[in-house]
């Protein structure tokens, strides 16, 4: 019997999710033994036409990492969807947009202006911007079109499962792969694999009190007590609003959880939930003091939506930035 085929693809992401697959160490041999890897451009030389040649549904599972922010990524997402029986949004970017998704508070024109014209290191006297089509003597050159917004994978194609994390922890990755290798029955469509049902706090060993916060700190501003809950100490730990499964890696070493495992099952909007929770425990009833305490949060959106913005209720506010300019 031929081995089931697997594919791994990398769209708008940093590549950490590819590394985490390799981080399963010797188990990678089990993967190679059990599956026929048909597409993994990061590690081996495959071409898109190889994928196009496979019959629809011919790939057993595709682990797709990265968000969708240009036309090529969309094209491959659609192609791999067609070819795969099981499509997994693998890692935070595919799951919910992750860091690339933060770009949704702005738009393409602004990004181009900054990147190609305004940064100090840019040398572009004519102010040239990327063009999708360029006429050259040799013919027309094409590059993918950059979109106004960043999408999670499931905003573009139908997704079967999600593996959260930035990146997913390798033990969880192996658990998911092992499940597939052993041919165990697949969970219901839409399930989140390789993570728990509770929050990061559940895995966190730190001692917590009833919370009362008088000011917030950034990580460089204080040396936290190693035993106590970071949030109790005023550090903006996203643990309470973040799904468990990572093993509370960050908080165990004194770094506040940034929320890469995404919202837990009861939460409709991770950032709004955190805003609600934090404001509930701010220790003041005086508007002026409340403003002062809130001012100690340097970047609320970047903190509460670091991984989840593209998948939040407000995933994107406007195609143009009229309102944003009005605010200023």
């Amino acid at each position: 019997m031929p081995k089931p085929k697997v594919a791994l693809y990398w769209a708008a992401s940093c590549g950490g999710c590819e590394i985490t697959v390799v981080d399963i160490e010797a188990h990678i041999l089990d993967v190679a033994k059990a599956f026929d890897i048909v597409f993994w451009p990061c590690l081996m030389d495959f071409k898109v036409k190889d994928v196009e040649a496979i019959e629809d549904g011919g790939i057993f599972v595709t682990l797709f990492n990265g968000a969708i922010r240009n036309s090529e990524q969309e094209h491959l997402a659609k192609l791999l969807r067609r070819k795969s029986k099981v499509l997994v949004a693998f890692g935070s970017c595919a799951h919910e947009g992750c860091i690339p998704g933060l770009a949704n508070v702005t738009n393409r024109d602004e990004i181009f202006k900054t990147v190609y014209q305004e940064t100090a290191s840019t040398d572009n006297p004519k102010g040239v911007l990327p063009q999708t089509k360029t006429e050259m003597p040799e013919g027309v050159l094409e590059i993918p079109e950059f979109w106004n917004k960043v999408c999670s994978l499931d905003q573009v194609v139908d997704v079967d499962y999600y593996v959260p994390g930035c990146p997913p922890q390798s033990n969880q990755v192996w658990a998911v792969l092992d499940h597939l290798i052993q041919g165990k029955p697949l969970p219901p469509k839409g399930s989140i694999l390789g993570a728990g049902q509770k929050t990061c706090c559940d895995e966190c060993p730190r001692v917590r009190k009833e919370k009362k916060i008088k000011r917030f700190y950034r990580t460089h501003e204080i040396v936290p007590n190693p035993e106590e809950c970071l949030l109790d100490q005023g550090l903006l730990c996203m643990g309470p609003a973040t799904r468990d499964g990572c093993g509370a890696k960050c908080v165990k070493v004194g770094v506040p959880c940034r929320g890469c495992y995404g919202p837990p099952p009861g939460s409709h909007d991770m950032g709004m939930k955190m805003i609600s929770a934090l404001s509930s425990v701010i220790d003041s009833e005086d508007p002026a003091e409340i403003e002062r305490i809130i001012a100690t949060i340097a970047d609320p959106v970047g903190t509460f939506y670091r991984f989840n913005l593209a998948h939040s209720i407000l995933y994107r506010v406007q195609e143009d930035l009229k309102e944003k300019q009005a605010v200023k």
């Binding site: 049902q197 509770k198 990061c200 706090c201 009833e210 919370k211 809950c229 837990p264 929770a277 509930s280």
Partner: peptide
Amino acid sequence: IDENLCGGCKVCNNL
């Protein structure tokens, strides 16, 4: 409170 979902953060404890 659904004990399968509560992470024990104690945010609610003095509210």
